[in-house]
Write a protein that binds this DNA or RNA. Structure first.
Lengths: 159, 159
DNA sequence: CTAATAGGGTTGCATTTTAAAACCAGATTA
DNA sequence: TAATCTGGTTTTAAAATGCAACCCTATTAG
C-alpha cells in the first residue's frame, strides 16, 4: 500500500519528515546548499533517476523548500534555488553530517573540515543548548506543560 | 527496482541518511528518546505496520542505534534501548522539531515547550555555530581544503 | 493448574514506489 | 541546419509498504 504520510500529525517532527524525510530530499537540499541549481547537475551529482528527481524537486517546490526560477533568455530554462525555509535546514544537514562523520567515518578520507568564513576557525558541533549555551542531552530536558490536554498521557512526551 | 543505498558513499550525510533517513526510523528514535522501549508501544504510538516496525528495529539494532535487551524473567521479553550513537541523534531530532514548528506549525496547538531540567528555562534554537558560539548560515562557512584530491572539482563542496 | 490474553514477531497478498532506460520537444551551440 | 543540451514523461520490472491473518512463547486471572 501507499506510504503513510504525516501531513496532519500533531507531531512537528513527523510533519517535518513528511517534507524532507525521504531518501533523496535532504540530499537534494544539501547539494542546493553548495551551489547546485540545475536539473542535470542534481541528476549527475546525486546519481538519482530522472523521474524520481522530477518528483522530489516538484515536492520540494510545493513545500516551498525550493523555488523554481525561469532563467531562460529566449525561452524557458530553469533553476531550483533554496528558499529561506530551505536554507533553514542548514543545522539539520550539518548535524547529520557530523553524526555521520562521528559514527560512520569514511575509512579512506578525513571528515570534511567546515570553517567560519569570517574567522577561518572550525565550526562547533551542532548541539541542543540551554539559554546559557551549555550542551544538553536528551535526559537534560523536559516538556513544559502549560495547557490542559484531552489526552493526559501525551503531556510529558518529548515528541 | 531496489531503493538506492549509500553505504559506501563518500558523503557522510548520505551515509547517515542510509541509517536513519527513511520515513520511520527517526520517528522510532524520537519515541525511544521519550521513553518507549517495547515493540507493542512503538507499534501503537506510531501506527506503523508490524512487519515494517520489525524491519526498522532490526536495522536500527544492526546499525547500533538501538540495542535489543532481553528483560524476560522466565523466558524472553525484549526492550529496545538507545545506544550512545542513538542518543547522539538528539540534536538532529530537535532541529527537525524546531524546523517543523517554525515552518509548519500545527494550526490548533502550540509548539512543544522544551526546557532545561536544571534551570527550567527554554532551550535555544539548534544552530550551526562558530568557535565563539555565533550562529552561522550556509553562506558563512567554507570547506578547508587540506589534502590533494584526485577529483579537484569536489574540493570546494560543502557536501 | 488451566484458560485467556499480551508480547513479539512472520507470512501472504494487493498496492505503491523506485530505478533504469527509452523517448521527446523546446533551447542552445557548432 | 544539424547536433546537442535541458528538462522532463513513459514504460517496465523489482522492491518496499500496509494490512490482515496467523503463530509461538510469556504472563496473568481465576
Amino acid at each position: 500500500m501507499a506510504r503513510k504520510r504525516f501531513d496532519d500529525s500533531s507531531c512537528s517532527v513527523a510533519r517535518a519528515l513528511n517534507e524532507v524525510g525521504d531518501w533523496w530530499s535532504l540530499l537534494v537540499v544539501l547539494h542546493a546548499m553548495y551551489g547546485t541549481r540545475r536539473f542535470v547537475d542534481f541528476q549527475q551529482e546525486l546519481g538519482i533517476a530522472r523521474n524520481i528527481l522530477c518528483d522530489r524537486l516538484a515536492r520540494l517546490v510545493d513545500n516551498e523548500v525550493l523555488k523554481k526560477v525561469d532563467v531562460g533568455e529566449h525561452g524557458s530554462r530553469f533553476e531550483y534555488r533554496l528558499t529561506e525555509k530551505g536554507r533553514d535546514l542548514f543545522p539539520i544537514v550539518i548535524a547529520l553530517r557530523q553524526w555521520g562523520d562521528k559514527w560512520n567515518p569514511a575509512p579512506d578520507q578525513p571528515a570534511l573540515d567546515l570553517r567560519d568564513r569570517a574567522t577561518g576557525r572550525p565550526i562547533r558541533q551542532v548541539a541542543v543548548q540551554n539559554a546559557d549555551g551549555d550542551s544538553l542531552t536528551v535526559r537534560d530536558v523536559f516538556v513544559r506543560d502549560d495547557e490542559v490536554s484531552d489526552t493526559p498521557k501525551d503531556k510529558k512526551q518529548v515528541g
